[in-house]
Write a protein that binds this DNA or RNA. Structure first.
Lengths: 329, 329
DNA sequence: CTGTTAGCGCTTTCAC
DNA sequence: GTGAAAGCGCTAACAG
């Protein structure tokens, strides 16, 4: 910068002003700009960060990017940040609480301007009050942190309604959930609500996600076999597309037809190869991942005003994925 | 830091030494450490970065994280960096050259310590000689940049050999490739090599990846239909799992059985739901993504020594994914 | 081994 | 308008 000033024959402050778009005489701005070009000058992020305490960096703390839902979320967060001229510090914490906290501290040390977190542990207590943070889905008891999530309650209702619309009489719910409370717990509430609304008897698996999920599904299936080998349910609302897919394979393996015998609707809207065109694994209640990501970024930037809602719910959509009978009425 | 020094009753330099692990009298180190704790002091990354010109930041420039291969690569890069105490700046360039260059400049401005790139355009000329960089797969003509890739040649040979081993007589190759040269071009060489080695007549699609791939596949299929409706090939080596999966669906749609009529082996080793347990989309030549990522990071750190190989090829493995007849001999 | 001090490159008063 | 100068928080060189 000194060099630029010398080259342009102006003072340091003038160069700084040009860079930051502060009014300067046209003549000087020209001189400075050409000098910048000839010298290939670029501002030093550290010096600037040191001075103005702003990094344009946002940390995303997420379990991993393997999972296609997280992968997609990450992608959209990155895009949303890029649009705002910000950069993404990616932190994959594998859902390990200690790692999540490590990353949190790291993010703070690196003077990120904000944090977007999709974590398992309760990170609320580890984070200073004045660092903007937005969490996806999860609910932390000890501090009010703005949350963004899909409308899980409405999504679950929609799943049941769609199953009914496509001819199901007995939709069940297969829920394998996290131990940590979050907005996705509302899928259960939504299912129960829909059951009561449509006079259905609720019937579900409702356990913590674990290694034995396949055998638990198998048990569930066996318990619902009638004497004649048919099933006492004809529709499945699965907690996630993944679980829906697993359950579908189990059904197929047992000789049942999907969607002829049993229709399945999952949740998330995960696409094969991360590519919407290749379709879903199962028919699904799709989370608006792009909008969720954009909302997270938007709220993060608005943080200074205390007008940030503590919960923002975005609407979900049903999409066909091969495991329902759209035309089967 | 000043506060810590005052609290501990020592000089600034002493505090700095404690932080950086430079020998200090035991008494003073104690004092400083407790002072750090009571004041919740944390070093300012910017000030340090400004001083020592090191950020512990590495930029990964990648098309996106939607694609499960990229997603997995990103995940492993992140993990490898974390192990070395470094952080990941994620840049999704969507394969858009201008965006790739933007990100490159951004990375430089942010004083990253290195760049790992999986890009489409030729970024070689935009990057200063003294910033460590490693590229995955791609080959740039105008500058020698260390590359890491899978052994695509051997992988293609392996694919053909496996198809033969499982009973195929006429394996074809379905190649939809990028316009940019890279190590994955060697899959073609490997296929041709294997054909000549086993006295097979090469037969393939070999075009640039495009929107019309499905209809091109269909054309290929039609051209290989015998009078009796059977096919003149019985094995497919697909350029990627994705293309293999597409081709499989086409075959199924046309009434052929996989793997009974046609066996398919893809390339990459992409798993459903990013979860190895759920299996592959097709039988595949799997790239050792974790090792590739670790090698990239390792080479990036070794960069100062000029002993970095210009090309590092890692071995691939065959894995069953439902589209081959392991036991079909 | 300890304390003092000169910057790293930038922004931002503050006089002019 | 413009230029000079004071730091932002840290490290490293140096003198004690």
């Amino acid at each position: 910068m000194k060099d630029v000033a010398r080259e342009a024959g102006v003072a340091l402050g003038t160069v700084s002003k040009v860079i930051n778009g502060i009014p300067v005489s046209e003549k000087n701005r020209q001189k400075v700009e050409t000098a910048i070009k000839t010298l290939h000058y670029e501002v030093n992020t550290y010096a600037r960060g040191l001075k103005i305490q702003k990094s344009n960096l946002v940390a995303l703390i997420i379990p991993n990017t393997h999972n296609p839902f997280f992968a997609s979320f990450t992608d959209h967060i990155e895009a949303a940040l890029y649009k705002k001229g910000m950069k993404l510090l990616l932190c994959c914490a594998d859902g390990i609480p200690q790692k999540e906290i490590d990353y949190l501290n790291m993010a703070v040390n690196n003077k990120v301007d904000g944090i977007i977190a999709l974590t398992y542990s309760d990170i609320g207590k580890y984070i200073s009050q004045d660092l903007p943070i937005v969490v996806f889905d999860r609910f932390f008891e000890n501090r009010v942190i703005p949350r963004v999530a899909s409308d899980n309650f409405a999504g679950a209702c929609l799943a049941v309604e769609k199953l009914l619309e496509f001819g199901c009489k007995h939709p069940v719910y297969i829920r394998f959930h996290s131990v940590f409370p979050g907005e996705s717990d509302k899928r259960m509430d939504g299912y129960l609500h829909a059951c009561s609304k449509y006079n259905l008897t609720p019937d579900y698996i409702n356990v913590i996600d674990c290694e034995q999920k396949l055998s638990l599904m198998k048990d569930f299936l066996d318990k619902h076999k009638n004497r004649d080998g048919s099933l006492s349910f004809d529709g499945v609302f699965a907690h996630t597309d993944y679980h829906g897919y697993l359950f579908m394979n189990l059904l197929l393996q047992e000789g049942f037809k999907v969607p002829e015998d049993v229709q399945i609707i999952g949740f998330d809207g995960v696409s094969k190869f991360g590519n919407a065109e290749e379709g879903l694994f199962v028919s699904s209640i799709c989370q608006p991942i792009e909008q969720l990501a954009e909302k997270c970024v938007e709220l993060l930037m608005t943080q200074d005003t205390k007008a940030v809602p503590s919960l923002t719910l975005l609407p979900v959509k049903y999409r066909y994925g091969g495991t329902t009978r759209e035309t089967g009425l």
